[in-house]
Simulated scan of single mutants.
Amino acid sequence: MKAVVENYRENIKLKKKNSILHYLKRDSFLYLLLLLPMAYILIFRYAPIYGVLMAFQDYNIFEGISGSEWVGLDVFKFIFEQNSFYRALTNTLVLNVLDLVAGFPAPIILAILLNEIRYVPFKKMTQTVLYLPHFLSWVIIGGMVYLLFSSGGMANTVLSSIGIGKIEFLSQKTNWLIMYVVVGIWQSVGWGTIIYLASIIGINKELYEAADIDGCSRLRKIWHITLPGIKPTIIILLILQIGRMLSIGFDRPFVMGNSLVSEYSDVISTYVYRIGIGSGDFSQATAVGLFQSVVGLIFLVAANYIAKRIGEQGIW
């Protein structure tokens, strides 16, 4: 009988230890630290989802979501009949593809080059200089680009002084595309190398030592050790970037664009700004944003599925 009672008491203690209250009491300080980020996510990520209902309404700002008339998919039908929407959609895809092709390999190459630098002070100084553009706002970067590459900017002044003549960097469409991609790489490449450098540091150093014993050159070690070592990181970041193919920041195309290149610079984010804030048509702006999110989710799932099918590690 005594053994049964002891066993019962042990079961009660075990249940208490496994209860939620037990963990809340034991790790109360950690849960308090979790409250702030959870509140941020709930307020700024989940609460605005309620506004998606505007995409299915003839939204009236004075009547609000609860009082506006429901129109079903009429807003989407209207949007898909607009040539300006397809132009913005095409430009978004083109600019993101250019960023993917030219910008995605850039931090990988830069991280490998930085990793190969043996003089530590120069390496640290280079990293600091390369990271700095990430902390500049696009308004500042846009002003710098205009001062340097506009028709009367420093670059054209130098070119004219040596007899080459002016080049319309920001008003000729092809040149603008090149400038858009190059400036984007310059702004983000240094920050993007942090992830790859961290991944390179995690590679087993004994592999490099064995390669040195075998007489491998630096290029051989990069090709057979470094790149395979950071391959999972590359795949995951590639999947995430493909998932953002329809998402494009507002500030970069808005600041760098102008009326002469609006055929290329008008993207989904500026389109939403123009019809939502400029024209006050919040239903159309919400519908475009919802379409953008759904298609982005499809791209993300498809990229992850393809990665898993070819034997790589996906996001989930």
Rank of each mutant, 00 (worst) to 15 (best):
V4S: 13
I201C: 06
I49C: 09
L300P: 11
V120E: 14
C216F: 11
S19V: 07
G165H: 09
T92N: 02
Y31I: 01
A111L: 09
L297V: 14
N115R: 08
G152I: 07
N204I: 11
L114A: 04
D99N: 12
F85D: 10
P107I: 01
R118Y: 09
S151E: 14
N7F: 03
A302L: 15
I167W: 00
K124N: 12
E206V: 00
W186K: 00
R118V: 13
P121D: 08
N18K: 15
A39M: 15
I61P: 02
M38S: 15
I162T: 07
W316Q: 07
L53K: 15
D99L: 11
L113K: 04
M245T: 12
S279G: 11
M179Y: 03
I203M: 10
Y305Q: 10
A106Y: 02
V97N: 02
K221H: 04
G276L: 06
F44W: 15
W138F: 14
L227F: 12
Q82F: 03
F104H: 04
F299G: 06
I306L: 14
R309V: 00
L30W: 13
V71S: 04
G192N: 01
I112E: 01
F122Q: 06
G215E: 09
P48S: 07
Q241F: 13
E63A: 10
S68W: 10
E69C: 01
Y59Q: 03
Y146W: 12
F254M: 14
S66V: 10
L89V: 07
T233R: 00
S269D: 14
D281L: 13
L34A: 15
I234S: 08
D58C: 06
S279W: 05
E6W: 06
G72C: 00
F80S: 08
V97L: 15
Y180L: 04
H22K: 02
D212C: 10
I200Q: 07
V158A: 12
V129Q: 05
L238Y: 09
G103C: 04
V145A: 02
K77Q: 09
S66R: 01
V295Q: 04
I235E: 01
A47K: 15
N60G: 09
V145I: 14
Y131F: 15
G153V: 01
M245C: 03
P232Q: 08
F85M: 08
I213H: 00
Y23T: 13
L100Y: 13
K25P: 03
Y146V: 09
S188M: 04
K231T: 02
V97M: 13
N18C: 10
N258G: 05
F291C: 14
V255D: 00
F135L: 06
T226Y: 06
F254D: 07
A307R: 11
F122T: 14
M1A: 14
D266I: 05
A102N: 05
T270P: 08
W223E: 08
M245Q: 04
L114S: 02
R26H: 12
M179L: 13
I141T: 06
L197S: 06
N7W: 06
K17M: 13
G296T: 01
G289I: 02
I12C: 05
L113E: 01
A155K: 00
I235H: 05
H134A: 04
I235G: 03
G280T: 08
